Amino acid sequence: MHGRRVGARAGEGRASLYEEITNTIIGELEAGHVPWVQPWGTQAAKAQLALPRNAATRRPYSGINVLILWGAVIERGFAGQSWLTFRQALSLGGHVRKGERGVTVVYADRFVPLDAQQRARETGDEAQAIPFLKRFTVFNSEQCDGLPEDIVTAAPLPPAGAIEPVVESLIANSGVDFRIGGDRAFYAPVEDFVQVPPPSAFFEPINWHRTALHELAHASGHASRLDRDLSGRFGSRKYAFEELIAEIASAFSCAALGIVPTVRHADYIGCWLDVLREDNRAIVRAASQASRVADYLLGFAPGAAGVVEASGTDCAAA
């Protein structure tokens, strides 16, 4: 995403913001990079594994903004995941350094046009809300001077061995019928159960936990939970869209818990590209749904208030 430079004049482009975001994600996927799975822990990434947060409000960013800000920390080599607006930096006693380039994040909402409201009153029908995105510019805390020390200090990662029990408690607390066995992982929507092979079947033990979170993301869509459309058949656009939601949701959940995200279904990249090329709002909708899923699942983790805070709509958290 293009940013703004402090002290420089920046005009709003005419291109659809949805299109800008979608084209960025498509470009990453075409280059073989999956935006919700960044090279955390490698020399290419200085940033600590975490969900990005607003430094002033301490609220986590959500939806497409997570992907935008993760991409920015990798591209620019930031070590921290704290962001804030120009005014927020001033309100905290600091300032954004002159010449620093910000990152455009978005606030997603809906509105009902006046003419649609009038027609609804005349016909008695329900007025249709139109989705829109509004731009905000944020800066990483490393682009600022004079901020309080606690703003720029990253929270420590969980100690080794502490993550797995949290995921296992989350599974138990979710109430989902979770079965261990067989040779493949899946969620059966009609019977409403998750099945995952035993941990011994995985090359790395933590892969079992990643897989469990992915399948639980699908299970969250059941009518008794978040009620998503799970009727898509394998190979269909609807099926690919649900896989996109589950992939991003499990990446968000993993990052919040201190697990390095990975791609579970890289073979779906072609299908995801088809979905994004067909609908330039698909990635924003998928990321928004993924945040809802991650918040839902992380709510079952022990000490959930410390793991995730409800982040509401896809906003700049500002």
Rank of each mutant, 00 (worst) to 15 (best):
R4G: 05
R4A: 13
A10H: 15
A10M: 07
R14Y: 01
E19S: 14
E20Q: 13
I21C: 08
T22F: 03
I26F: 04
G27Q: 06
L29S: 00
E30H: 04
V37K: 01
V37C: 06
A44F: 14
Q48S: 08
A50D: 05
L51S: 00
Y61G: 01
G63A: 09
G63W: 14
N65M: 06
L67F: 04
I68H: 04
L69S: 07
L69P: 05
R76H: 13
A79I: 05
G80C: 12
S82A: 10
R87F: 00
Q88K: 00
A89W: 07
L90V: 04
S91V: 01
H95D: 08
G99K: 08
E100W: 01
Y107T: 03
R110G: 04
L114Y: 07
E122R: 12
G124E: 06
D125V: 09
Q128M: 03
A129K: 02
L133K: 01
R135S: 09
V138M: 05
F139V: 02
L147Q: 02
D150W: 09
T153Y: 07
P156H: 03
P158M: 06
G161K: 10
A162S: 15
V167L: 04
N173C: 02
D177P: 06
F178I: 02
F178E: 10
R184A: 06
A185M: 09
A185Q: 05
Y187P: 02
A188Y: 15
D192L: 03
D192R: 04
F193N: 14
V194Y: 03
S200G: 09
E204P: 09
N207P: 05
N207T: 08
N207Q: 11
S220Y: 12
S220C: 15
G221N: 10
A223E: 11
S224V: 09
S224D: 14
R228H: 13
D229A: 09
S231Y: 12
Y239C: 12
L244F: 10
A246I: 01
A246K: 00
A255D: 09
P261G: 03
T262A: 15
R264T: 02
D267N: 12
G270K: 14
W272A: 11
W272S: 11
V284H: 14
V284K: 13
A287L: 13
Q289D: 05
G299H: 14
G306Y: 11
G306H: 10
A310N: 12
A310R: 15
S311W: 06
A317S: 10
